Simulated assay, not measured.
Amino acid sequence: MKTTGIHHVAIICSDYELSKKFYVEVLGFSIIQETFRAERNSYKLDLRVGENDQIELFSFPNPPERVGKPEACGLRHLAFKVDDIEQTVFYLKSHGIDAEDIRIDEITNKKFTFFQDPDNLPLEIYES
């Protein structure tokens, strides 16, 4: 098998309008397509992240809550590349989004930190 990249990351949210606003208006991802699937009473929002990356944001009626432990088996977090981490943290905080203190990756010596989406999904920003 030969892959050529990651096509998308899928996220299920509990409040579609709140998450849509967060990912589009705050994080600045552009909408590729928004689809309401009546048979599932669910939205699917395709978002462009950077030049080639994509997030699929799903809404479902009454989805179960995310497992609370950050070290649980499965997807740990989603990381986004940024050019200036201090500027990005300032921007997030100006929009009422708390970010952890900036740390240094002991392997790459790059700066990174974490914040959360409206459903407490851990998101990372990593300085490129």
Score class of each variant (00 low, 15 high):
Glu100Trp: 15
Leu75Thr: 11
Gly5Pro: 01
Leu123Asp: 01
Ile97Asp: 00
Pro70Val: 12
Gly28Trp: 05
Val82Cys: 15
Ser30Ala: 10
Thr108Cys: 10
Lys93Ile: 07
Lys110His: 15
Ile97Glu: 00
Ser59Trp: 04
Leu18Ala: 10
Val49Phe: 04
Glu100Pro: 08
Ala72Gln: 12
Asp105Met: 13
Ile85Glu: 08
Ile102Gly: 02
Arg66Tyr: 13
Asn41Asp: 15
Ile6Glu: 04
Arg103Val: 08
Glu106Gly: 10
Phe36Gln: 06
Gly50Lys: 12
Lys2Asn: 13
Ile97Ser: 00
Thr3Val: 08
Ile85Pro: 04
Pro70Leu: 12
Leu75His: 08
Asn62Leu: 12
Lys21Ser: 14
Leu27Asp: 00
Phe80His: 02
Glu124Asp: 06
Asp101Gln: 15
Lys69Glu: 11
Ile125Ala: 00
Asn52Arg: 12
Ser94Lys: 15
Arg37Asn: 08
Glu71Ala: 12
Gln33Trp: 05
Ile125Asn: 00
Gly28Ala: 05
Phe22Gln: 01
Asp15Gly: 06
Pro63Leu: 06
Leu92Phe: 05
Gly96Gln: 03
Arg66Lys: 13
Gly68Ser: 12
Arg48Thr: 09
Phe112Gln: 08
Asp119Phe: 04
Lys93Phe: 08
Thr35Val: 13
Phe114His: 10
Asp119Gly: 02
Ala10Trp: 04
Thr35Tyr: 14
Ala10His: 07
Ile107Phe: 09
His77Gln: 04
Glu17Arg: 14
Ile31Ser: 02
Glu56Leu: 06
Ile6Gly: 01
Val26Glu: 00
Tyr23Asp: 00
Ser19Asn: 14
Ser59Lys: 03
Asn62Ser: 14
Lys20Gly: 01
Gln87Glu: 15
Asp84Pro: 00
Tyr23His: 05
Thr88Gly: 01
Lys20Glu: 04
Asp84His: 02
Glu127Val: 05
Phe60Asn: 03
Asp46Phe: 03
Gly74Asn: 13
Lys93Ser: 13
Ala72Leu: 08
Lys21Cys: 11
Leu27Ala: 05
Ser19Phe: 04
